[in-house]
Design a protein around this nucleic acid. Sequence first.
DNA 1: AGATATACATTATCAGACAATCAGAATGAG
DNA 2: CTCATTCTGATTGTCTGATAATGTATATCT
Lengths: 227, 227
Amino acid sequence: MTAIQRVKIRDVVVERLKKYITAGCLKPGDRLPNETELAEQFGVSRLSLREATKALELFGIVESKTGVGLTVGTVCLERVTEHLGFHPALQNGSHQELLDTRVVVEIGALPYTAKRMAEDPTVYENLCKRVDDFRQTRDLQKWIELDIAFHRALLDASGLAPLVAFNDLLQIFFQRFRDSLKKADWLPGIEAHQRIIDALHNQNVALATEELRQHIEYHKGRMGVPV
Amino acid sequence: MTAIQRVKIRDVVVERLKKYITAGCLKPGDRLPNETELAEQFGVSRLSLREATKALELFGIVESKTGVGLTVGTVCLERVTEHLGFHPALQNGSHQELLDTRVVVEIGALPYTAKRMAEDPTVYENLCKRVDDFRQTRDLQKWIELDIAFHRALLDASGLAPLVAFNDLLQIFFQRFRDSLKKADWLPGIEAHQRIIDALHNQNVALATEELRQHIEYHKGRMGVPV
DNA sequence: AGATATACATTATCAGACAATCAGAATGAG
DNA sequence: CTCATTCTGATTGTCTGATAATGTATATCT
């Protein structure tokens, strides 16, 4: 049996809407035709079109205001996180895969970070400040936030915005595991953070790489059971 | 003026649905009440409930099958990235940034690919076959497809599915640049592909890395003007 | 017992209607 | 003329009701 599956209209509409936006090079804030017109254009009922737009609206890809119409929205990952952060249904690839992916992304960015660090002294200073914040915090929940923020800042310092966006998505899948960590598990991480940025500061990418790898993989044994 | 904003019913329903899932500790695959029942329970019309479920379905948070009903779904990174091509980080990223991001991702995956290649001989064979396909093609459009497919396969061979998903996203933004390439620009790429997988086959990750870096950056000068 | 056909529950999609809301035009007052 | 107010048209938000498509489970027949 060929695993045919009924193509649902709204999925087609979703794709066509996305294509409509990209094809027209529409930017956030740009107006879209109204529902009736789009529905007619796509040859579907207004309801089917609505189901598509409403779904996209949850991502922020489009926005709709009563009495105004549809506009292209600004995708912000916070909104995505908000909807995906709640626990039950996210269990994607194995933890190992996700962990390895993080290693690839974060380590791959290090050379770029080192380069920028050499050019701009504030980069190192800002990262140091983050480690200091870490040291002065006792609250577990705050630590989790700071840890995420640090790794994000480290990536951000590379100047590769796409990687930062991708990392934000990955973090969603790590959220659950962070919550299960104990206070003691975090302590070694603080100095590891410091060693990483110090190595970068000294333009020793190889050392920073090794420190970061160990730092990420340190959690491997502590996070829940692999698939 | 307090920025009051009409609370849309479907947003309330979305929240209640998420709460319903978390409160009941429902796991992927678990059944939900049917649409009419849920609508009644939430005190909204079936349509409003549908708009909420359909929106959540785009994320994979819930799944619905005709004739079966609603079930709790599994959120997977692939599905999320699939719809996130509109993220500002990707749209506003300069060509240089996107190119660097590709370098990070593809090179970072090489060690994993090499490892899998050592364990499974078919990995190398499959990649070789792709290069052969390349050699026997004269059509420009076909070359573009094969090139995308090759790089995708190379990533896929690493076993890191999240990276593949991210790469798929990136490729969207390289599409237009590929179209601007001439036939002659592609010729050197064929053998570069071969050299990369051969180096991996010999477990020479360093060489593969250097080949791949040069291969990707070869296009740098040929692709449109940097931002 | 096994294969086939039927019935039922459920979602998918549609059409039409009315209410709520907003932006801008028309109107009026000063 | 300028500003505030009202009105109007456009657009989305929500509802009701109905029909088609689909998958599961039951019942039926061989």
